[in-house]
């Protein structure tokens, strides 16, 4: 098991190198450091000297990949690529183009993201499984038919409508929760509750429908029929046999996104003013803070790869027939 995980981790290294090269190319070949300097120095009274100094301060005055003026190993290390991309591997994210320490910002913004994403994730799974089971339980009845219709309708509505509508109704008209913002500790609950509800509702349609097919697939299997024939009540069959087995595809499907919960949701966070990593990324995109975007791309890739490894492990945990190799 451990050997397997180590091997998978090693396999992740070339992928991260690839990610790194790709983002580096996108950011540095497309936009010159001059451009970056100009946006960050503002609009009024920008001199070429100020730009040169800005670049120098951030190490953007170096050559991209190969420094012919340096000596020895410095030829490769005293370059933008080494100083800004390779250091990511040791999770040294460096400073943002505005001069703030990115690592610290990520650490502090991670929690609000989690505060939204984790409840959304957990409540979402619970609600979706409950609904899916209900539909499977009442399969063939009007409840099932209408349930599926409602699910299809719900998944045909853009998330944006849920967000816009939810905020308008609950915050503006009914005065139930603050319109936007965030606070720490217990005070956070009133800010979190609406985004979580909206996030859950937005995901009900597609997930319920998908999980329902998982349940139905299990229900039609022989062992379920046998159980039923033995005279077990429908509820018992559903909870004892079907649920347990249908959880396998459900769990393995969601494990991959668990690490990505840290990154949060771009739309939810920017809409509700949650100071998490999602809004951090959006702000970085809007203000073209390349250092932050680079760091977030790298972090996202790392988390995604962790998710993949977790998925593989979870297969073996829930289904002993699968062996790791």
């Amino acid at each position: 098991m451990i050997a397997y995980i180590v091997r998978r981790l090693l396999y992740a290294v070339p992928i991260l190198i690839g990610v790194n090269l790709l983002t580096f190319a996108l950011f540095f070949f497309v936009n010159s450091p001059d451009d970056m300097a100009r946006i960050h120095l503002g609009m009024k009274r920008v001199t070429p000297e100020a730009i040169a100094k800005w670049k120098e301060d951030r190490g953007y005055d170096k050559p991209l990949l190969y420094n012919s003026r340096a000596a020895g190993a410095d030829k490769f290390t005293d370059t933008i690529f080494f100083r800004h991309s390779v250091r990511l591997f040791v999770f040294d994210f460096g400073r943002s183009d505005q001069g703030r320490n990115i690592g610290r910002d990520i650490m502090s913004r991670m929690w609000p993201s989690l505060a939204i994403a984790l409840p959304t994730f957990l409540v979402g799974i619970l609600v979706n499984i409950t609904f899916a089971m209900l539909l499977a339980f009442f399969r063939g009845s009007y409840l099932d038919t209408w349930g599926v219709v409602v699910a299809v309708i719900m998944m045909s509505i853009s998330t944006l409508f849920y967000v816009i509508g939810g905020q308008y109704l609950v915050s503006k008209l009914l005065h139930l929760v603050p319109i936007s913002g965030y606070d720490t500790g217990v005070e956070a609950i009133k800010f979190i509750i609406l985004p979580v509800i909206i996030g859950v509702i937005g995901g009900i349609g597609s997930s319920t429908r998908l999980y329902r097919t998982f349940f139905l697939e299990e229900i039609n299997k022989d062992y379920v029929r046998t159980a039923r024939a033995k005279g077990l009540s429908e509820l018992r069959v559903l909870f004892h046999h079907v649920l347990k087995n249908a959880m396998i595809p459900i769990l393995t499907g969601v494990v991959v996104i668990i690490p990505l919960l840290f990154i949060g949701s771009l739309i939810m966070e920017s809409f509700f003013g949650i100071p998490g990593l999602g809004s951090y990324t959006i702000d970085a995109i809007n203000s073209q803070d390349f250092a932050i975007v680079r760091a977030m791309v790298f972090l996202g890739s790392v988390l995604y790869i962790i998710g993949l490894i977790l998925t593989d492990i979870s297969y073996t945990v829930v289904d002993p027939r699968v062996r790791l190799n």
């Binding site: 603050p178 319109i179 913002g181 920017s270 003013g273």
Partner: peptide, 13 residues
Amino acid sequence: FSLEKESIPYWNK
């Protein structure tokens, strides 16, 4: 001073 990126929530508050 609270961070309020969008003008609409600001206005409503």
